[in-house]
Design a protein around this nucleic acid. Structure first.
Lengths: 225, 225
DNA sequence: ATTTTGTGTAAACAGAATGTTACCATGGAA
DNA sequence: TTCCATGGTAACATTCTGTTTACACAAAAT
């Protein structure tokens, strides 16, 4: 399965930092976006639904810790990786950062190499599961062979259909919001109509012949047996 | 749901380090085990199957990096968390550690607090499943799966119904005024009639089949078992 | 006892959200 | 080229939710 490039949002009030971090991560193949204060970080996070967010601790409007706490209260950002960036090299803020729900912590002055390798390490840790066949009850979803099996019976899905099912199947039971689905399967830059998701959901349901996708009206869809 | 204490294996050739790390993690509720060189680390890892392994980079017999590489080749240790411990504070070894497949990296001199909080953060990342689920007695309210369970029996609520219950359930026993409910669930801009809340309360009561919402006349409602 | 105030309940309605179908554009394969 | 699979849109059908209305009932106030 083709992998969409990871989206990283970087929030810092120093343009130099934004640029150097953005440049180095971009070189690694990440899609980078920036924000220059806490409020903008939250706003852009909601709009972009990034895979990882790098937050400077000391920022105008809202500190990185505040932004982290606010984002973490929302289900949408439960899985988002968060890394703190700070000039304070002391233990206290270090611990505070991690306890707030950050996944890592890098102190300034930043070595681009270190930052990149830590980011890579975080993604590696999360995506150990990548490439593995998902098995939920009698349904298995194989991203390598691009095939879905139901009780040993194999079903072929089109790319988008497969990606959609794979996303939902990756966390059975969890509800995926419509924008989440849009940004994960279609990407943030593409603009598609309102009925597009529904139509694809329908196609998947039809091809599978099993009712394993539940609609949660006003919210989204979830995979459930 | 009760959780078995996490097992942590610590490998270092300095007895002092072993003791201080073991003591501090033990105090946090982890089950700790030690090894004094690379070979012993591998041996004990196989025997204990720990959830997390802390490896000193500089150890006799085999270095931490070697141990990590060897363990990572085995399926059993694919998901095991690995943290490196080192006196070398330079970037080179740092990067090397993470690229080898470690999940984190802490440099000596070790601050026990920092180590403990990083370990906590690693585990928190692994089980973020049950993060936001409210549990009150035999009722659990899961905003990620959008499901309410009563004694393992699952109930689906409509969006507003769910939000209403979630609000009340977020502070069991506390009375929520009608305007409070209005502003939290419906928002400040929306104007709805007086009976709307009642009707929703009724629907929730009906669907749950359990009497867990108490009316406080002239005031509001509260969640109570 | 009567009125007033607050809440419970059922039914009905409007409109939002989703399901469904048919159709079009595109691009690769035969 | 033609054919076909894919992905997207538009238009309509259907379902479900949220809200209101109307009234019953209960408790408190008069």
């Amino acid at each position: 399965m083709e992998v969409r490039p990871k989206r990283i949002l970087i929030a810092d009030d120093e343009p130099d930092i934004l640029e150097i971090v953005s440049y180095n991560l971009g070189k690694e193949g990440y899609e980078t976006y920036t924000a220059k204060d806490g409020n903008e970080a939250i706003e852009r996070a909601k709009q972009l639904n990034p895979d990882l967010i790098i937050l400077d601790i000391m920022m105008p409007k809202k500190t990185g810790v505040e932004v982290c706490r606010i984002l973490r209260t929302q289900p949408l950002f439960q899985d988002t990786l968060i890394v703190f960036l700070t000039a304070l090299n002391d233990d206290a803020s270090h611990i505070k950062g991690l306890e707030t729900g950050a996944d890592d912590y890098v102190s300034k002055p930043i070595s681009p190499k270190v930052l990149v390798s830590r980011v890579n390490a975080l993604f590696r840790r999360i995506h150990k599961e990548d490439g593995k066949t998902l098995k939920i009850g009698n349904i298995s979803i194989d991203p390598v062979r691009f095939i879905v099996s139901i009780d040993e019976k194999e079903v072929m899905l089109a790319k988008k259909e497969f990606e959609l099912l794979f996303l939902l199947g990756s966390k059975p039971g969890r509800v995926f919001l419509r924008n989440e689905i849009l940004s994960q399967v279609w990407g943030t830059d593409v603009i598609v109509g309102d009925r597009t998701i529904d139509v694809h959901i329908r196609k998947v349901r039809q091809k599978l012949g099993v009712d394993c996708i539940t609609t949660v009206k006003g919210v989204g869809y979830k995979f459930e047996i």
